[in-house]
Design a protein around this nucleic acid. Sequence first.
DNA 1: ACAAAAGTGTTGGTGTTACACCCATGG
DNA 2: CCATGGGTGTAACACCAACACTTTTGT
Lengths: 247, 247
Amino acid sequence: MKVNSTIDHSNNKSEKLADFKVGVDNVIFSVDTEYNRVLVLLRKRDVEPFNNHWSLPGTLVRQGESLTDAAYRTLAEKIQVDNLYLEQLYSFGNPGRDPRENPNSFGVRYLSVSYFALVRYKEAKIIAKSDKNISWYKVNEIPSLAFDHDEILNYGWNRLKNKLQYSPIAFDVLPPEFTLNEVYQLYCTILGEHFSDYSNFRSRLLKLGFLLDTKVKVSRGAGRPASLYKFDSKAFAPLKDKPLLFI
Amino acid sequence: MKVNSTIDHSNNKSEKLADFKVGVDNVIFSVDTEYNRVLVLLRKRDVEPFNNHWSLPGTLVRQGESLTDAAYRTLAEKIQVDNLYLEQLYSFGNPGRDPRENPNSFGVRYLSVSYFALVRYKEAKIIAKSDKNISWYKVNEIPSLAFDHDEILNYGWNRLKNKLQYSPIAFDVLPPEFTLNEVYQLYCTILGEHFSDYSNFRSRLLKLGFLLDTKVKVSRGAGRPASLYKFDSKAFAPLKDKPLLFI
DNA sequence: ACAAAAGTGTTGGTGTTACACCCATGG
DNA sequence: CCATGGGTGTAACACCAACACTTTTGT
C-alpha cells in the first residue's frame, strides 16, 4: 500500500480525505484576587446549534492569519487587556464533535485548536459591557457548555494548575508591583488553600532570585506594611528553560 | 463588529476564512536499550516539495477518521508494534509552513496535528525492511528535516524527557518483565547519565508500590543475578491521576 | 579442579537540603 | 493585626560503603 504523506497531493484515491474547518477556542482565565476566585470568560451563543448555550469564545481562522493571531483576535474582541499569558492547549478534531457535520456530506469536519489564556482580572474590561452574552463565570460554577467545550475547559483548568507550579505565569497577571502575600493568595486561589506553607513559600520564591524588593511599603488595612516586589525579567532570563518549581 | 464563532457559518464576509488541509505528523521514539540510545523513526520523502529530504512520518486525515486513528494508521503503516504509548503533541498551522501554499490562492493552508509515540525497539519491525526510505535515526544525529519538522521533533523530544519524569510511560515500552537496572538504563539513556543515583532510584521506584517482584532471577553475563519485576497496573490505578515523580 | 579476582545486583549508612509546622519580632 | 524572619523536627536526596551472588581468570 502506498504511503500517504502529510504533504502529499498524491493521496490514495480509494480513501477520501476529510475536509476541515479550523477554528480556535479560548479558555480565558482570570483571578479575582479580591474575592479569591478563579474566573473563566464565557459567551452565550446566539445561533444554532446550541443556541442560548454558553460556550468558550472562539473564532474561525482567516486567510493569512496564524492560529495564535486568531486566538489573540478572539480575546481582543471580548476583553481589553494589556498583559496576558497565552499558549496553545490541545486540538480537538474527532468526527462528530460538531452537530453541523452533515452525515450525508461526510467529509466536513470542525477542528478546534484550543488556547489557554491568563489575564489580569482588574485590567480586563469586557468590551461590550451591556452585552449580557459575555460574562465571567467562577470556575467551580460553570454551566453545561456547548459542543465539547466542557472537556476543553477541563483541559485548560488542569493546564493552569500545572503551569503555575513550574512557570512564572503568575507574574504576567499580577500588577507590576505586588506584595509576596498577593502572590501567595493567587497560588492559594488556584491550587487550593493547603498547597504550601506561607513562610516556606516566601523563602523559596525569594531564593529563586528574580523578585526585586522595591523597599516601598504598603498597608492593606491593619497589620505591618508589606514590601512591594517587582518581577525582574533580566534575572529570570537564565532560568527560563530550566525546570523550576515555584511551590 | 459581529463576533465570529468557531462553529458559525455566519462568518463575516469581509474577512475570508482560511481553507485547511489537516494532517498528522508522528514523532516516534524508541529506546535501544542494548546500545543505550534514543531513536526516532524518519521517512525520506519521494515527492516535491522537499523531495529526498527526511521527514516525520505523517498522513492526511481521512473522512470519518479521528485524529488519533490517523496517527495510529501512520504508525502501523511503517512499523509493527503491539505495545506503545501515544499522545497528541501540538498543532502547527501558521501560514507559510508548507511551500505548496500558493500565494495566489491565499486561503489554502496545511495544518499539522503532531503526535508523540514511544514504542518498544526490539518489537518494532519496520514493515518494508527493504525500504531504504524508512529508518531509525539516533536522536542526537538527526539530519535537517523537511518543512518545520525539526521544530516538531524538538517539541517531541522535550515532551519525552518531561513525560518520563512524572508518568509511567517507560513501562509501556519495557518488556513485560524487566530488571530494575533495565529501568534505570532506560532513564539514563533518555535523561542523561547523572539524573539520579541508582540506589535512590531503586528505593523510590519500589516505594511507589506498583512494581511486583517475581522472585525470578536472571543473570546477564557476570555478576549477581537480578530480580525480574512486573508493572502492576492494578496497584498503579489509584495513582493514575496523582502528581507522581519517578526520578 | 580449585581458589582468587572481578563484575554486577542489592542493601544500608551519613551528611546535606528541603520542607511542614511553629514561634518571635517589627511595624 | 499582619508581614517578616528564624528555629526545629522530619523526610528526601546525593554520595558513599558494604555485602551477596555470579562469572571469569590463574595456577
